[in-house]
Design a protein around this nucleic acid. Structure first.
Lengths: 176, 176
DNA sequence: AGGTATGGCTAATGCCATTAGCTTAAAGCT
DNA sequence: AGCTTTAAGCTAATGGCATTAGCCATACCT
């Protein structure tokens, strides 16, 4: 069911995933959904866990046997491709407040972050800078894909080209 | 009224700005609001215009007489400070679909982008790379402030420090 | 057979955005 | 001054959506 909801979110935007619409998609009456999730917020959380898990898996696969710039490029492209393919799923991962420390989102999110850390391990960074670099990577990738998904890049310069340029920029910065 | 709505958004998060709550804040009945805005989407758009205008003004002020790294740092800090001070206003600027080309959001957004362009003008960039660099800056700053506002930086390394490190990173990359 | 989940259903509640139509007071015109 | 228009408020009503309560069947375990 979470998969159905996630698919629906990818199709119609997360904000338009209404309990009624999801129920219809599943051939079921709306209140029946509450036998599976406790609320819409809960549903969102589950979609987020699914998304972070899938993204984490994709990153692991993409980073197999790569390091340095190759790894950076692979990770960046993987994330961007995932968000383009699954915008609704990715949206669900934004604005999550994991109050409980054993929330599955925390674990799934940590796996994604671990992959980014692995990318950084391929560079000779001052250990004191690792967290900064991680935040740089996160911010940059998140910002880019979010802006792209929102249609924020209006100018007619090719967005793919910008993305590749950006990868090169970060690689050079981390190398020097 | 838009100012009241914006203030409310900063206090209770944009998602919780309901027409009823805003009406109560203004000492008025809910339907009366529709004499001033045509819908909640319209209200959001107006908050966004306010935010982008204020941010554009702040950027202009901050960039007076600065160039190069100074300008970059000033712009970055200005944006971050604005979002921290006005998270609700900033939220309103996300997910805007300006269907009409003469929408005020377009103009207000363009002013902000112009300031970022002005920052880049302080570096000797290959003209072909300017748009890429602009997108880098936007993505990075937007991503950072959004993640910070969402409480996304969990590790105990100081976030201010990361932000300054990030400014240095970009400056070095644009300089070299 | 008897008991317990599991998952579905109908009916009802309440919040929220939005619309229609009425009213009043200020503003402006003659 | 008198008339009109407009701005801004109000009540009442509608419809969408999330959520809860309480009922029923089926499958499974013993």
């Amino acid at each position: 069911m979470v998969v159905a909801a996630a698919g629906l979110a990818d199709e119609v935007r997360l904000a338009n995933v209404t309990m009624g619409l999801l129920a219809e998609r599943l051939g079921v009456r709306t209140p029946s959904l509450y036998k599976h999730v406790s609320s819409q917020a809960d549903l969102n959380r589950r979609i987020a866990v699914l998304a972070l898990t899938e993204l984490g898996d994709a990153l692991r696969d993409a980073l197999q046997g790569r390091s340095g710039r190759d790894a950076l490029a692979a990770a960046a492209r993987t994330i961007r491709a995932y968000v383009i393919a699954h915008p609704g799923r990715y949206s669900a991962t934004i604005r999550l407040n994991a109050d409980s420390p054993d929330d599955p989102v925390v674990a799934a999110g940590a796996r994604v972050l671990d992959s980014l850390s692995a990318v950084l391990a391929g560079y000779q960074l001052d250990p004191a800078d690792t967290v900064h670099a991680l935040r740089l990577l996160r911010s940059l990738l998140h910002g880019f894909v979010v802006l792209e998904a929102a249609g924020g890049f209006e100018m007619d310069t090719d967005v793919d080209e910008s993305f590749e340029w950006l990868i090169g920029f970060v690689d050079r910065g981390l190398t020097s």
